[in-house]
Design a binder for these strands. Structure first.
Lengths: 230, 230
DNA sequence: ACCTGAACACCGTTCAAGT
DNA sequence: ACCTGAACACCGTTCAAGT
């Protein structure tokens, strides 16, 4: 039996099973969540995508929780941290938070994962350290910086998680958006005048980055307002 | 066969199966989540608690998602909204957000549910309307009010969700807290000086309400800072 | 109207082997 | 070291009945 491999050359099958590594698994899990939502991320499904038995994944992750942690870590690692730069602390803070939000927005269906995992991975710690350092130079105590900094990061992550997930085709996306608008507009104008006035915005149609400017601006403005007198 | 009921009187069994209603199911689901965490909330488990077959619950909820929505709605309904009251808008906003946080803090393991469900139930809409109304009197446009208001609510909910869930006995709770502190303190002081300085606060030991004052204060201060010149 | 019972197609995970 | 195969104890949900 001379042919011991179905691939054309003697090199081990490449495209078919390009290595099984924690990073590759987490990456495909992330891509799967982007395509079909977090609930589609399944040990068995992932194994199938890698043409491997479900149990094979357990060599690389203790359990599914560890896999989820890995996804969050990968997401945090994708943040393109800006150079320290110059300028006032709040300008640097704004750029830092902007980078954070930009990275999360690329994967809205798993953005919520980082809310409770900010301090349990290296890239998360690096980001938190930078935020705390800026708050330190602003004059906050370590305790204040800890609360304000983690609040800022958690809140922005939650804000991004608010975005609609995959929804496959853009047609269904539009339909859902219209439905949400119509539902809000159908409310009693007597009881909910302000909601109706803002229905279009509340329905979350715009997902351009201008939309997120206000969230970041709010947080940074709050920090400046609470800044101890220097 | 004269005895057609195992209960003593002719009245239908009371304590044994005190009626099966959507509200009762959602309430027990919420209690279960408080005791054992959200992942313990299961159609089958809930049915068992109500001494009923799993399928019986489907008469009252279309599917599990609807049940989860019901839990979120119940949580929002438990908010004890303050009287409109007097004083500047930001003071009233502070009281409103405080009431919101107080209600969520009673059920930290499901607080995260409201992040994406703020506008899909009546009590959520009532709260949002009040927030928008205050922002309207502050001079914000409906669009600004919508973004700022939903951001404030989502971010505070996410912040509460950061708290540890059930953990059963307080001993395990303490152990987990100590472990988190130790882990942070074991980081490189060269790389993470600010994290180490704030390790105790970051580990989330205090869950008194003073802890949440800062989050609310930050949001309200941010709103005031962004308030259009009046 | 409200609940049951059996069944289906999935889960995460264990254990004992294989190479 | 890395993967397989069969099995276990769970899931949510369907369908067809029961009363």
């Amino acid at each position: 039996m001379p042919a011991k491999n179905t691939s054309m050359s003697a090199t081990p099958a490449r495209a078919a099973r390009p290595r099984l590594t924690p990073d590759a698994i987490a990456a495909s899990a992330l891509a799967l969540a982007d395509r079909e939502g977090l609930e589609a991320v399944t040990i068995r499904r992932l194994a199938q995508d890698h043409q491997v038995t479900p149990m094979a994944l357990y060599r690389h992750f203790r359990d599914k929780d560890a896999l989820i942690d890995g996804m969050a870590e990968r997401l945090l690692a994708s943040i393109c941290l800006p150079e320290a730069g110059s300028g006032p602390w709040h300008a640097r803070m704004h750029r830092l938070l902007q980078a954070f939000v930009d990275a999360l927005r690329a994967h809205p269906s798993i953005a919520g994962l980082v809310v409770t995992r900010m301090l349990s991975s290296d890239p998360g710690l690096v980001l938190a350290e930078r935020v705390l350092a800026l708050l330190h130079t602003a004059g906050f105590t370590p305790e204040q910086a800890a609360e304000i900094g983690t609040y800022a990061l958690c809140s922005l992550a939650a804000w991004v998680a608010t975005e609609r997930g995959p929804d496959l085709d853009p047609e269904a996306r539009d339909a859902a958006l219209r439905l949400r608008k119509a539902t809000l507009n159908a409310l009693s104008p007597r009881q909910y005048p302000n909601i109706i006035d803002a229905a279009d915005t509340l329905a979350h149609g715009a997902d351009d980055r201008a939309f997120y400017r206000l969230g970041i601006a709010l947080v940074v403005a709050g920090m400046r307002a609470l800044q101890p007198g220097d």
